[in-house]
Design a protein around this nucleic acid. Structure first.
Lengths: 353, 353
DNA sequence: TTGAAAGCGCTAACAA
DNA sequence: TTGTTAGCGCTTTCAA
């Protein structure tokens, strides 16, 4: 019954084969046949035929008819770090558990790419859109709104759609305090020894910087603009910032607040160029969790954003009839050095488990 | 002109507004109007209207008509590690550069999920499918074949579709040799001190195990089945394997070949339970590259699979009129400890760059 | 240079 | 219990 490259069977093929009408076939095959009071025998006949001919519904046609597709989208800035890949992994599981089909796309933090991608998704009549890391959430919102597509922002506060965001301010406070306290009372951290690297002028970065500065000046005093080194979300730029700092000062700051794991990769690149001793006395706080990052040869304190809670809340809000545009804050978690947390992969059953 | 939640404009709306027929509008809006010799003025008129009314084509309808969708799929087992997230990132860029829309899905190494997901993708008339990490590539193949969808296997050798795979045997040889040579001549590694952890009975694992054993017996002699500890692709199972080993032997093996970064996470979990000294004398080889993993407090030698080359080759093959079902081997790369390689994120322009 | 009409595969009134 | 019919939005002959 293999039909190499031949066209797929349609309800009309099965209609002819079964002697029933197309609408009967349709009802049988999309599960509405019981309430259409179709005879068990007819149903069985058609289901058999469908099986034999490997029938599967054409979802574009169904979607066209319904103006819905069963697709739920996640818009990511990038895939390649543990925060976003965990997000995708968790999203995937949540959508599937709701019987829909998850599709993930990324748009490289490029506003044009974001809009174009969202237009494409809308054109496929996706049912819902989860937006994270968009540079321009409000334009995305406008598109979705016009198309009547439910959407929600994750860890970025759109003013026009409901948002679930990590409490970046509080997280940054915890992290900054943990960095400072990590130092011995005999050689405590001085204000000019604590720097923040990475991030840009987005909401998350601004909040983190604010938390950092507040705690820094409260605990150490002597806050200054110089201790903030924004580098964007680029490992290469971050590395350059470290190199420049090192050239000027002859050493790294003893206390480092790194804005994301992507920026942390800039420190890795710097590390590759310098001997172990360069890092003997430093403490790093990273606003992101990466399991390998937690075990580097110096103390690394990390913040793990509560992805499951954020997504759960997001699903809850998006299901509401008329969600309000409030911002829902989710608390992140401080992760001490040398900690290997469970992640979304642990939910996957393995044949060896 | 904001039409809150109203239905999207269609060519019929524009047809009425412009006084032209729907087919003219269609031609203007899908770019075929020049060869249909439609007047510049008519085109301009319609384009204006389209702009004003925020018209975007309904891609489901177009896809239904064309039996194609412009979508290119990537099927992943999981998202949440650097190998697969880099794969997704690179795939994304490659597909976009070809003017299509990438969509990524994962299926958790569950054969049923895989088939169901692929059926869904087929039902949306995706144009091409890249398959990586499927547990059952040949069934997936059968589905694609029946639907006439071009597809290709990546790093898993289907017998029925063309495959691009990493040279796992050669990579494992390089890695095993590098682990052994890393030890000082004064205290060389003994055969009973070198173990392989992780993997299962899939093609990649089998090839890696074969390479490991060949080099081990050639260089150290005394190969035995006991030095192979398959644990599946699960951090928890791998951790348990390490715990068991440690309980029995009172120490870890000095030489560790770890089958993937997912298994490496099992070692991290073990590390969290044991003091630094436990790892003072070990050398780890990991068959996967993770930038943070490369900087752990003991020497970590990694294998980086050449994702760009694999995908490039895959795109090349899938574009061929009649690709042969051969297997194309791509050489991976040995990565020495403390190395931070560039990745797909470096290709993304950042506003700070 | 443009329009009319058929049809992609499916669903859902409505009729029988 | 089942069939007929119209139509989702678009493309594409064919005719004008």
């Amino acid at each position: 019954m293999k039909q190499q490259g031949k066209k797929k069977a349609t309800i009309y093929d099965l209609s002819v084969l079964s002697g029933c009408s197309a609408s009967t076939v349709s009802a049988v095959l999309n599960g509405t046949w019981r309430k259409r009071r179709i005879a068990e025998s007819t149903a069985a006949l058609i289901q058999n035929l469908a099986e034999q001919h490997q029938y599967t519904a054409n979802l574009q046609a169904r979607g066209l008819r319904h103006s819905r597709s069963g697709l739920v989208g996640l818009l990511l800035p990038v895939y390649d770090n543990r925060y976003f890949s965990s997000m995708a992994q968790t999203f995937e599981a949540q959508v599937r558990s709701r019987g829909k089909c998850p599709i993930v796309v990324s748009a490289s933090r490029d506003p044009k790419e974001e809009l174009a991608t969202v237009e494409t998704l809308i054109s496929y009549s996706i049912d819902e859109l989860f937006i994270t890391g968009a540079t321009d959430p409000d334009s995305v919102h406008t598109l979705c709104e016009a198309a009547g597509i439910r959407h929600i922002n994750i860890d970025l506060p759109g003013t026009k759609a409901p948002s679930v965001i990590s409490d970046n301010y509080e997280g940054a406070r915890m992290l900054t305090e943990a960095i400072i306290r990590r130092f011995d009372a005999t050689r405590p951290l001085k204000p000019e020894e604590l720097f923040l690297f990475g991030g840009r002028n987005d909401h998350a970065s601004r909040e983190r910087i604010r938390g950092f500065r507040d705690v820094k000046s409260a605990l150490l005093g002597g806050d200054s603009d110089a201790c903030i080194q924004p580098t964007g979300y680029s490992p290469a730029m971050t590395q350059r910032a470290f190199e420049t700092f090192y050239e000027r000062q002859g050493k790294l700051p003893r206390g480092l607040f790194i804005n994301s794991s992507i920026n942390f990769e800039g420190l890795l690149r710097f590390m590759a160029q310098h001997p172990h001793e360069t890092f003997a006395d430093i403490v790093v706080g990273c606003y992101d969790y990466d399991p390998f990052g937690s075990f580097l040869p110096f103390p690394v304190i990390m913040i793990r954003q509560n992805i499951e809670s954020m997504l759960e809340k997001a699903f809850e809000l998006i299901a509401e009839h008329r969600p309000t545009n409030k911002i829902h804050l989710i608390q992140p978690e401080l992760v001490h050095p040398r900690t290997a947390l469970k992640g979304p992969l642990d939910a996957i059953k393995d044949i060896y488990a």
